[in-house]
Amino acid sequence: MAHAFERSITGKIIGRLDAVEQALLRSLLQQLAVLLHESDDGAAQDPIAQLVGIQDLAERPADPALLRLFPDAYREDEAAANDFRRYTEAALRAKKTSEADAAIAILDRADSKVELSEAEAKLMLAALNNTRLVLATRLSLTDETTLEQLLIAEQDSGGAAHLYEWLTWLQETLVRAVMRDETN
């Protein structure tokens, strides 16, 4: 069992994950990166759009997991929501993709200890959160009760609900380690 993330006496954030756990986390992050890359609907091929970060057409994602990562910014104004998407979604996708890639790179250089700078801790935190958002959508998690039911149904088979619970625990320990520096 991992000790997950904690802040050491010297102030460094250290995650203790064994090789199996690191491989598992890496594979989940990799899936997130693939999903983000695949969702790129052509703006990346248009150099001008890429330059200005504005898309001619930014379609509302049909995949609920992507819609959770790129939600509507206006609830009752479709035109405003679409405009907001055109102006922000490409940059948001690029940010989430780079966070997933950075988290994978951190794991690639780690040994039995995953040592994180403050900036890296925040990248890892964001990538973990995005992974949980996607996994939760795939599991149709609507509340705590749903998760408990899924965990019981999976028993000890180590299915997706158990993975989700593990990621939740990882993120919780990481956010607490990061917050130990935020006083006031």
Binding site: L69, F70, P71, D72, A73, T88, L92, K95, K96, N130
Partner: peptide, 13 residues
């Protein structure tokens, strides 16, 4: 709102 979406929070204007 864009920043909240970056953090993965569900936010609207």
């Amino acid at each position: 709102v864009a920043a909240m979406h970056e953090f993965g929070l569900w936010a609207t204007v």
